[in-house]
Simulated assay, not measured.
Amino acid sequence: MMSEKSFAIEMKNVTKEFKILNRHEGLGGSLMDLFSRDYRILRAVDDISINIKSGEIVGYLGPNGAGKSTTIKMMTGVLEPTYGEILVNGNEPYKNRVRNAENIGVVFGQRSQLWWALPLVESFRLLKDIYMIPDQNYRQMLELYQSLVDIEPLLHKSVRQMSLGQRTLSDILAAFLHDPKIVFLDEPTIGLDVSMKAKIRNLIKGLNQKKNTTVILTTHDMGDVDALCQRIVIIDHGKMIYDNDIAHLKQYFGSYRTLRLRLEKSGWKEILVDESKTNVMSVISDYQKNEIVKDIKLEEISTEEVIKKIYEGAVA
């Protein structure tokens, strides 16, 4: 049995398989499917082991269909692993779903947990009763929220009157309200403008620092990763292909540079150059043979480009 105290989340050799019916075509095929035992096994998560410490902000990344959502559903107790062990706050989440729910917060897929027609403060009061939050703790959380972000204009506004950014902000506040030990955030800044993204990132970072809350973040926005995550875990086709901090990742790809050229006819072009194999000046010269180069910028490789390289198989 894994240790119950050392980590907020422990996963050991976790695998999740689904039985998928091999369907037949046509009306006759549909009738056959009703009685068919012709199944194939889909392995959505494949032998993943992770230990996450209390207070960490971990980016859980991967392309669509990589197995991220399935892993999160197992951590939150929605799904039971086919093989392996999971402990969340010392509990097996799928066996103790109520106890697990008391100690986690979730913001998934912009599915609001707030009451659509009620002012935000009334949703907060209902959540206070649901989670049996003591009066003093509730007041302290609202004071903390006010110190991190100006929530006063939102408190008496109904959720249906809010913008997408305001709803997302409010849902994150709701997820932290009962002071959970772990909060799961799924694409928290998707579809938001730059200003609201910055506000939400600052809020998440502030709550993590003040409450030492463990945050598991799934996102395709590398700005979220750079701003928030101390560590990233990357999975692809159900397998974990990277688990370390961003600094290590960029160090591994330290010879890469992003070359941006503004060409007279084609406009800006972005080229990823591995300086251990290719001279930057030779790349520029090759482009100059066909078009006049009007401007040049050379930058460190971005986190987004690093992730792309890992997906391509250049694993650190």
Rank of each mutant, 00 (worst) to 15 (best):
E4P: 09
E4W: 00
F7K: 05
I9N: 06
T15F: 04
E17I: 03
K19M: 07
I20P: 08
N22Q: 09
M32D: 11
S36T: 11
R37E: 11
A44S: 00
A44K: 01
A44E: 03
D46Y: 07
I50D: 01
K53G: 08
G55S: 06
A66P: 12
A66V: 07
A66D: 03
I72R: 05
M74T: 13
M74W: 06
M75P: 11
G77K: 07
P81I: 07
T82P: 15
G84Y: 04
N91M: 15
E92N: 12
G105R: 03
F108T: 10
G109H: 05
W116I: 06
L126T: 15
I133L: 03
P134D: 14
Y138D: 06
M141C: 12
L142S: 06
L144E: 07
D150R: 11
I151A: 04
L154A: 02
L155S: 04
L164S: 05
R167A: 14
H178Y: 09
E187S: 13
I190H: 07
G191C: 00
L192Q: 00
R201Y: 03
N202H: 14
N212Y: 11
T218P: 09
M222V: 10
D236R: 07
K239H: 05
I246E: 01
K250N: 02
S255V: 09
R257Q: 05
K269F: 11
L272C: 02
V273L: 08
V273Y: 01
V280S: 02
V280E: 03
V293F: 03
D295G: 06
D295I: 01
E300V: 13
K309D: 10
V315K: 09
V315A: 04
